[in-house]
Design a protein around this nucleic acid. Structure first.
Length: 686
DNA sequence: AAAAAAC
């Protein structure tokens, strides 16, 4: 294989040295011969690794993981010598029953009970006999509740003549809970010159300040509490578009504030307009079904997301911006107790965040009616409309009681939006404005992107070196392609003494949420993840995203690395590339060039080879099968443009790699059997 | 040869 000849120039040691990590305290690189970290200092490990924490790495820290960290105390003696505890795994730490279980005991919606206190201060509310029957401990939570309060006639009366534009009284405890998070403020000042494209007739002027538009007392109050100073570029444009009741397809870079870009104007509009017909519908449902527990909710706004954790995250944002309002946000998603979710819905639901499957379930159970849903948001819209999700979206949007397009307002957001999916998306939009902030599908220049050649067998060793070079207190997100691969890598890292956890679709929802929590909190600063964590998740302090396995399409890559470098912060993304990744070569190269990143000359050469060997490759495979007769390939962004066709591109100037670009290197690869492989392989079948 | 999304 090609590796033989590459080794001297692009061996692991040289590549590591070139990575330029901030605390590049990488071992085993000094000598000529690369020594895998887990084979180094085996003797020393026995002596200087008390408790086995750093398992042979004697440079004083293991991934910034201190002996003094408090997770150590959770370990029983049985963990001596085995590394940190994974408190999210039942079998490992014996630690379950502390964290999540505790939360569970109080009901997963405990925070929402607090949210409901936003109705507090009205001592006359919700004192139904139903809740008063309960024991004192639960009454404390429920008696300030509002709409869900059981007695229907009272509830109906209370809902009458409410002015939704006026804030409800503050609640200090809830306010603290919602807004004490650390990184709510977004600093996007330096992006004023970002290119913006808005097409569609009569688009409104962008705003420059949150005060430029009348968003109402409640929204402005919550913006202040969130410490938002100025709108981000996507917010500047999307907010006035949504406020002027236009449909919208919006593309903006990862981490640029898309969630608030739709939540703020939608909620603002709901506060201004009030509940309208939805209130009457819920009232009727309540009257027809006298018993508590039979009521159907008619949300005014629906937000759909492709993963459960993202839905949860959007819901958490919605809680902030609905503080002190009459709007009660809810979230429903699979893998969690549906009974709990139903009970929560029945306490009132005006803005619903959902994953598609569970929402369909709720609709079929008669718990949710979309008849009065005036606002529909598809977050990560290209994912929501791809082959896996499209039927469910049509089921929800087109084949039920939701108002048709034109009557409802539809908004779509994503960082990537392949042309093929944009065409599909038009089915759901009416007279929409297309908004592109930055170039669609491009990456933030705040992210330093590195691509390194690593053979499969070297990946683990290389990963350990990267982890060891990562500073303390910074989070590292490691993406793999398969769920099995995630488990295997997590086990490996665990055995090597790293505080890590994992998230993927085969883990229980409880474990998934716990893993994310452990990662977010820094307790487990390494998270091994599949695509489930690629999109939308906003985790502060992710310093390094590692593509242990590169994804097969470039959109996935863009979203993955977008977990770092958010809201103006700097981030690092390192991708392991080898001859299994030929399918992404060209698109990856384009992304690197566009984001003004250093391009390894071997990647350039490979892209050139690839272009020659198979001209019709691109992202087409994702779209060629699933959409019937329509030709979605016509716009494939990866089809055109030859190697030499990229204007203004310098092929030299890549430092140490100079001299290996150009035809010679490429010829070497192809003569070595590399190229021949690629023209044949269809990556997930055929 | 995959991930995700309901039970």
């Amino acid at each position: 294989m090609s590796h033989v000849a590459v080794e001297n120039v692009h061996g692991l040691d040289q590549q590591l040295a070139a990575l330029d990590l901030s605390s590049a305290d990488v071992q085993g690189v000094t000598g000529r011969r690369y020594i895998p970290p887990h084979l180094r200092n085996k003797e020393a490990a026995k002596n200087d690794a008390p408790g086995g924490w750093d398992n042979g790495r004697s440079n004083g820290f293991v991934n910034g993981y201190h002996d003094g960290r408090d997770n150590r105390m959770n370990g029983g003696s049985s963990f001596a010598g085995r590394g940190p505890i994974r408190s999210d795994r039942g079998g490992r730490g014996g630690f379950r029953g502390f964290g999540y279980d505790n939360k569970d005991a109080g009901g997963w919606n405990v925070p929402k009970d607090n949210a409901y206190n936003s109705f507090g201060g009205r001592s006359d509310r919700g004192k139904s006999s139903f809740f008063n029957d309960r024991g004192s401990s639960s009454r404390g939570r429920y008696e300030r509740g509002g709409f869900g309060g059981g007695g229907n006639s009272r509830w109906v009366e209370e809902c009458r003549d409410e002015d939704w534009s006026k804030p409800l009284p503050p609640n200090e405890r809830l306010e603290h809970e919602l807004f004490s998070g650390s990184n709510t403020g977004i600093n996007f000042e330096k992006y004023d010159d970002i290119p913006v494209e808005a097409t569609g007739h009569n688009g409104p002027q962008p705003i420059d300040s949150f005060h430029d538009l009348e968003m109402g007392e409640i929204i402005m109050g919550n913006i202040n509490l969130s410490r938002y100073t100025r709108p981000t570029p996507v917010q500047k444009h999307a907010i006035p578009i949504i406020k002027s009741k236009r449909d919208l397809m919006a593309c903006a870079q990862t981490g640029s504030g898309k969630t608030a870009a739709f939540l703020l104007p939608v909620l603002s509009q709901i506060y201004t307009d009030g509940p309208g017909e939805a209130l009457q519908a819920a009232k009727n449902s309540a009257q027809e079904n006298g018993k508590y527990g039979r009521r159907k909710q008619y949300p005014i706004s629906l937000v759909l997301a492709p993963t459960r954790e993202l839905a949860l995250q959007i819901y958490d944002e919605a809680r902030k911006f609905s503080y002190r309002s009459h709007v009660r946000p809810c979230v429903v998603y699979g893998g969690a107790d549906i009974g709990q979710q139903i009970r929560d819905l029945e306490r009132g639901c005006h803005l619903l965040v959902a994953t598609p499957g569970r929402l369909v379930d709720m609709m079929e159970r008669g718990k949710i009616g979309l008849d009065y849903c005036n606002y529909l948001v598809l977050d990560e819209a290209d994912r929501m409309l791809d082959m896996g999700f499209e039927p469910q979206i049509r089921r929800i949007v087109e084949q039920d009681t939701m108002p048709p397009k034109g009557l409802r307002q539809t908004m779509m957001f994503s960082a990537t939006f392949p042309k093929e999916i944009q065409i599909l998306a038009r089915d759901f939009l009416e007279d929409y404005i297309f908004l592109a902030v930055g170039r669609v599908g491009s990456t933030s220049e705040n992210i330093t992107q590195k691509v390194v050649w690593v053979e499969e067998n070297d990946k683990r060793s290389f990963l350990l070196d990267l982890l060891n070079a990562t500073g303390k207190d910074s989070l590292t997100l490691v993406f793999v392609e398969t769920k099995k691969g995630a488990d295997a890598l997590e086990d490996f890292l665990y055995r090597e003494g790293y505080a890590c956890t994992s998230i993927h679709g085969d883990r229980s929802q409880r474990d998934r949420e716990e893993a994310l929590h452990q990662f977010r909190s820094g307790r487990c600063p390494i998270l091994v993840a599949t695509a489930v964590a690629a999109r939308g998740l906003d985790i502060s302090n992710v310093k390094h995203v590692i593509n242990f396995d590169l994804p097969s399409d470039i959109e996935e890559y863009v979203h993955r690395i977008g977990r770092t470098g958010r809201v103006g912060n700097l981030g690092l993304a390192t991708s392991f590339f080898n001859d299994k990744n030929g399918n992404i070569t060209k698109d990856l190269l384009d992304i690197l060039v566009e984001a003004k990143q250093e391009v390894p000359s071997w990647l350039e050469s490979l892209a050139y080879e690839h272009q020659h060997k198979s001209s019709s490759r691109g992202r087409s495979k994702r779209f060629s099968g699933g959409f019937g007769a329509r030709d979605y390939r016509q716009n494939s962004s990866s089809g055109g443009g030859g190697f030499g066709g990229r204007g203004g591109r310098s092929t030299g100037g890549h430092g140490g790699n100079r001299g290996f670009g150009g035809g010679g290197f490429g010829n070497f690869y192809s003569s070595d059997g590399y190229g021949g492989n690629y023209s044949q392989v269809d990556w997930w079948g055929n």
